[in-house]
Design a protein around this nucleic acid. Structure first.
Lengths: 125, 125
DNA sequence: TGCTGATATGCAGGCGGGTCGATGCTGTTG
DNA sequence: CAACAGCATCGACCCGCCTGCATATCAGCA
């Protein structure tokens, strides 16, 4: 396991909003940008949308290639990026790999992007 | 003026959420991805953060180059992208160009990314 | 055991984007 | 009017990413 691409969905979800209080630092900006980069792709947005709208809120790769019009390796690639960003979770049942949303992650991003109008931003310290 | 890069901040703000209801279409995905691409950059996130934290909620280019550690043309480039995405607005006073946030735009993005947990999402059909 | 099907990975091509230096433009100042 | 300062644009370089093809891996099945 000396390689690089395994189990990194840990430090992905940032905590500091760029829209509340003092300017964010470089490291926080890069982490938030990383998750936003995962979102900022039409194919991946459609993947999230397709999975969310799937019968049980889950879908496997074969169900997604046709609606997207992309090849199977490309779809796997996008699903991998979304999973490593913490936006999707993967469960392998038999030969199929089922992907489903992680609502908390997306909610966190939405929260960070919400200006301090209605959210309290928890400035309680 | 037959060029391409002028006054495009019109069809930028999307309306359809990828996380509520039926799958989004390709065009909507591309528009939302466009705005997210504008956000998905550390320098631009820090720019938004710096402007938001500025004394009157506004800042000019010269105030932003030093904290970012980027050259003035690069900062102008990022500000241009943010402005064309509808996230910033520009007001030129004399020689200075003052940029400020457009909270409604960012709130729209945050709203589209909010899963139908707390938001009503208008599932009325 | 050997085969088929579903998924992941390697590799390569092509395009878009971030960055900087140089330059042009405009408004201010002496 | 001349010099200067702030900002935008241009051209260029380089890196990362999206995509597909080929291939490897793994589970189920005859």
């Amino acid at each position: 396991m000396g390689s690089v691409g395994t189990a990194l969905a840990e430090m992905t979800m940032p905590q500091i909003s760029p829209l509340a209080g003092e300017p964010i630092e470089r490291a926080d900006a890069e982490r938030l940008a990383g998750v936003l980069k995962a979102l900022a792709d039409p194919a991946r947005l459609r993947l999230l949308s397709l999975i969310q709208a799937a019968p049980d809120g889950e879908a496997c790769v074969a169900d997604l290639t046709s609606p997207l019009g992309l090849s199977q390796p490309t779809v796997s690639h996008h699903l991998r990026i979304l999973t490593e960003s913490g936006l999707l979770e993967r469960e392998k049942r038999g030969v199929w790999a089922y992907y489903r949303l992680v609502p908390a992650s997306i909610a966190t991003i939405a929260d960070l992007l919400t200006p301090p109008r209605k959210r309290a931003t928890k400035r309680a310290r």
